[in-house]
Design a protein around this nucleic acid. Sequence first.
DNA 1: AAGCCTTTGTGAACGCACGCACAAAGTCGG
DNA 2: CCGACTTTGTGCGTGCGTTCACAAAGGCTT
Lengths: 234, 234
Amino acid sequence: MTRRSTLGARNRGIPEATVARLPVYLRALHTLAERGVVTVSSEELAAAAGVNSAKLRKDLSHLGSYGTRGVGYEVQYLVYQISRELGLTQDWSVAIVGLGNLGRALAGYGGFASRGFRMSALLDADPAIVGDRINGLTVEHIDKLEQVITDCGISIAVLAVPASAAQAVCDRVVASGVTSILNFAPVVLTVPDGVDVRKVDLSIELQILAFHEQRKAGGPGGVEQEYLEAVDGS
Amino acid sequence: MTRRSTLGARNRGIPEATVARLPVYLRALHTLAERGVVTVSSEELAAAAGVNSAKLRKDLSHLGSYGTRGVGYEVQYLVYQISRELGLTQDWSVAIVGLGNLGRALAGYGGFASRGFRMSALLDADPAIVGDRINGLTVEHIDKLEQVITDCGISIAVLAVPASAAQAVCDRVVASGVTSILNFAPVVLTVPDGVDVRKVDLSIELQILAFHEQRKAGGPGGVEQEYLEAVDGS
DNA sequence: AAGCCTTTGTGAACGCACGCACAAAGTCGG
DNA sequence: CCGACTTTGTGCGTGCGTTCACAAAGGCTT
Ligand SMILES: NC(=O)c1ccc[n+]([C@@H]2O[C@H](COP(=O)([O-])OP(=O)(O)OC[C@H]3O[C@@H](n4cnc5c(N)ncnc54)[C@H](O)[C@@H]3O)[C@@H](O)[C@H]2O)c1
Ligand SMILES: NC(=O)c1ccc[n+]([C@@H]2O[C@H](COP(=O)([O-])OP(=O)(O)OC[C@H]3O[C@@H](n4cnc5c(N)ncnc54)[C@H](O)[C@@H]3O)[C@@H](O)[C@H]2O)c1
């Protein structure tokens, strides 16, 4: 059978690397759309997204054949297809746990709502923080976690609590039915199968930059006998 | 000569994937050290870091042979070796540009200093913000950018400015001598060769989670004829 | 209607990364 | 001093991701 069946190019099983780039393409497309651009070639879009054009085309080919040869891709249509693939045609309710420095910044950020992510619940353990209103939402006490998550139909949680509390909070949100977690605490979270965790660790990012920075400056080599000096104070 | 030469296992050219994991190992090692652990096996450390033990050993082998067969790795010694490889035996001066919601959270965070990153300069364009004291530092006007970066010997900059200003600010910090950038603005930055950019995009992280979340719920397939409905209001 | 020009979609080659599995190396008890 | 046991360091097979390069496809002009 030469004919392509129902799931032809639309093979369930989009490479993870591709999934991670789709939001970048989407952002570039939104910018183009605002500028009134109707059609875009893979070359132009790739440049806007900061990737190789072959890679872009292969990525898009995983969703289907949505381009027109000799012309390019229709911006609006592609926005819709990528959005659909990413699950952005529906709204997602998100809970933020931990409304300290970072949690507040996240709760007050407008860039999420525009992508279909609604911050539906803010939770904290500190009585001094519970009751605060942030961006139109009231901070609830962590004791209401299970109730709030169930009531709001929340499946995504953002953890902005101290590292020492992260695993415990994680366990609770998972027990309440959350299956996707964005973790800011510098710890490795353990979760059951079927639960996705993504971590954002700013300290790690800086350390990676420092590594390359050091390379540019000449590298660590040269001095070999420094350990004893560094450890032994004498 | 059987003795390992200056560059033996210490091959210049550590895989990028390894570099990204070294900070995770380092964090796990610090935790173990605090707990008084002297020696750790690859199996234990791998578990603490959430990776495969073979991967851990291969990663560490890129720095040299710092383990003892039959015993494991000495925690303190390994901390030192990884720190040195990452360039954390020296302090790094970092500038934060944009002291809005996010910039403030970053400036107030204590977790950076403990890794050798000193926030040396805070810069913003808003006169209402310039002069504020955050965590013992005064916010300077962006006009002093070049001067401050030069004076403090800053080579790493964190950008927490609006997307619309990011590229312009980026160009300025690069022109001032910064060669490593951590970017929070949702834009693709263009920089000259030799400058490293790492991006942190929380919106993208949520979108990736949404993609997998949708999969768990049954996937987008099924309904094929939705585009016209979605675009055309009628 | 035909041919030219542009751009897509993908086959194929390559390189990196992961993880298994094991020999070599070292420890520790007797 | 020796033998059993533990754990490292790595060779190797496998799979994923990237990139090149080009045939096929469609539009546009004449
Ligand atoms: N602020 C930053 O820039 C930054 C940078 C990198 C990483 N982080 C990490 O992000 C996390 C939050 O950072 P932060 O600066 O906002 O810390 P923070 O101390 O300001 O805020 C933590 C909040 O969590 C709350 N909390 C503590 N235990 C809780 C529990 N069991 N249940 C619910 N809430 C609880 C606290 O009341 C507090 O409001 C930390 O893990 C930190 O390491 C922060
Ligand atoms: N707050 C969040 O949780 C969050 C989440 C994801 C992404 N981001 C991104 O991080 C960036 C900062 O977010 P935010 O919420 O802190 O925004 P914000 O508007 O609160 O702060 C931006 C700051 O940058 C300053 N600024 C503007 N133009 C400047 C210039 N040319 N030079 C120097 N300073 C300038 C402003 O005065 C302001 O203080 C944005 O690009 C945003 O999209 C923020």
